[in-house]
């Protein structure tokens, strides 16, 4: 019981630090791709600390409620991940956070927030089924939804589920807010919707959302690492390569429309998943 509590507190504290570093590295690499020097590694932390020092300003008190719910759901899902719990349930808990982010943005009457929120919903609509299918694929292979069963499995899942790993890549790109899927809000300054779903969040509440995003980043990368769960070096390399690829894709592609996203992601995701699952049932 005590060790559980320590583990929970540890990952609630440690994961955002990890997420912040990932974000810092991301910004440096992206800058190098664009022939810039880029910010210092700790810049994401400076940003968030500064946000927490700002005055509390809201458009609607429900924004505060939703920001807290978002970070609560994101942190609970990552704790459950560290407890090696049920993958499908982790996805549902993570979805709660995403929904509250949208509801918070919808509670502002600004058209920028509203349209951003709807685009965020469309992004959820695009990636949520794919994540479920990825998890189902893992279940078909290891016969369990529990993460610790995956860790006990004696060969890397990517050997049996290569296409599902690509499917996860789509979900990852959307979830990390990378081009071509950064419709609702993006890290770069190419948003014609001001800041999309985040437009009316400000100050400490925006800081909370930033931290919650770090939790989510670590969660989806954790999902990636499950594809090479036999040893941590393999997992680390897999995640590192995937992330570098994400950054490259982000830099070489333009942002697309939601119609294209929904059609393309569903078509590719479903086809690849079905192919992989059918193949799995044949071998």
């Amino acid at each position: 019981m005590i060790t559980d509590l320590v583990l929970a507190i540890f990952c609630i504290v440690f994961v955002p630090v990890l997420g912040g570093f990932i974000s810092g590295i991301d910004r440096i690499i992206t800058a190098r791709f664009q022939s810039r020097v880029g910010p210092p590694l700790l810049q994401p932390f400076y940003d968030v600390i500064k946000l927490f020092g700002k005055e509390k300003v809201v458009v609607n008190v429900w924004q505060a409620f939703c920001a807290y719910c978002y970070i609560a759901a994101a942190s609970i899902s990552i704790v459950m991940f560290f407890f090696k719990s049920d993958l499908l349930l982790i996805l549902f808990v993570q979805a709660v956070g995403a929904i509250f982010l949208v509801v918070g943005a919808l509670s502002s009457t600004s058209p920028f927030s509203q349209v951003g929120a709807h685009r965020e919903l469309l992004q959820i609509l695009s990636y949520e089924p794919l994540l479920v299918l990825v998890v189902v694929g893992m279940y078909l292979e290891v016969d369990s939804f529990k993460i610790w069963k995956i860790y006990e499995w004696n060969e890397p899942l990517i050997l049996k589920l290569p296409f599902l790993f690509i499917v996860l890549g789509y979900a990852l790109t959307i979830k990390l807010r990378k081009s071509p899927f950064d419709l609702s809000t993006s890290h770069h300054a190419h948003q014609e919707l001001v800041k999309g779903v985040l437009t009316d969040y400000s100050g400490p509440f925006l800081g909370l959302i930033e931290i919650a995003h770090w939790y989510e980043t670590v969660l989806v990368l954790g999902l990636c690492s499950l594809f090479w769960a036999t040893n941590w070096i393999g997992g680390f390399i897999l995640v590192a390569i995937t992330y570098i690829l994400e950054i490259i894709i982000d830099n070489v592609s333009a942002r697309m429309t939601w119609r294209w996203m929904l059609g393309y992601v569903w078509a590719m995701g479903i086809t690849l998943s079905v192919v992989n699952m059918v193949w799995l049932s044949l071998v």
Binding site: E55, K56, V57, V59, S108, S110
Partner: peptide, 12 residues
């Protein structure tokens, strides 16, 4: 606690 914070109109 947010009720005590400054409430502003949305960005337009």
């Amino acid at each position: 606690s947010a009720a005590s914070s400054r409430i502003v109109p949305p960005y337009l």
